[in-house]
Design a protein around this nucleic acid. Structure first.
Length: 151
DNA sequence: GCCAACGTTGGC
DNA sequence: GCCAACGTTGGC
């Protein structure tokens, strides 16, 4: 899951405990969240649009997808004129159990690692804010972050 | 701040 | 359905 650290960082998540991942306004990202983010699933927390983009920590899906009500909140940044009470269009999951890596796994590292170089996030122009990660990729990220064993 | 890449919108 | 225009993302 990508986030701009100036807006919401892994530190913010740790401080908050849990957070509703609202504001997703891309259908592909929504579908992935809705169909594949099971409660308990682990998440890589990526800092984008920052001097040192990369994966800065871990989190876990703590709440199943529910309607993102900010889509029907007139005046809210996430308001979508196409959404309605009956069809809010957008959904969100709850994320929690944030853990910060001792050392981040930077985008430059990801691109240079044979196991990770095919990750979506390594692709130029890839803007999807929620991306699938394979088990091998996940393990390799943990390894690069300094974890000796899988969790 | 620049700008390439992308998704969405809307005229036709 | 096409595609130009536009707004946004995000690395650099």
């Amino acid at each position: 899951m990508k986030s701009e650290p100036d807006v919401f960082s892994i530190d913010d998540l740790i401080q908050r405990g849990v957070e509703n991942w609202d504001g997703v306004r891309n259908y592909q990202a929504r579908n992935f969240m809705r169909d594949h983010m099971k409660v308990g699933a682990q998440v890589l927390f990526y800092h984008s649009n920052t001097a040192q983009p990369g994966i800065y920590g871990l989190a876990r899906v703590t709440g199943a997808p529910v309607p993102d009500k900010t889509s029907i909140d007139i005046g809210h940044k996430g308001f979508d004129p196409k959404a309605s009470v009956d069809n809010p269009i957008w959904c969100m999951v709850e994320v929690g159990q944030g853990v910060k890596f001792f050392k981040p796994v930077l985008l430059s590292q990801i691109r240079n690692d044979p196991t990770l170089s095919e990750m979506l996030v390594a692709r130029k122009g890839q803007r999807l804010s929620i991306q699938p990660v394979s088990q091998a990729e996940f393990r390799q990220v943990l390894k690069l972050a300094g974890y000796k064993h899988d969790q």
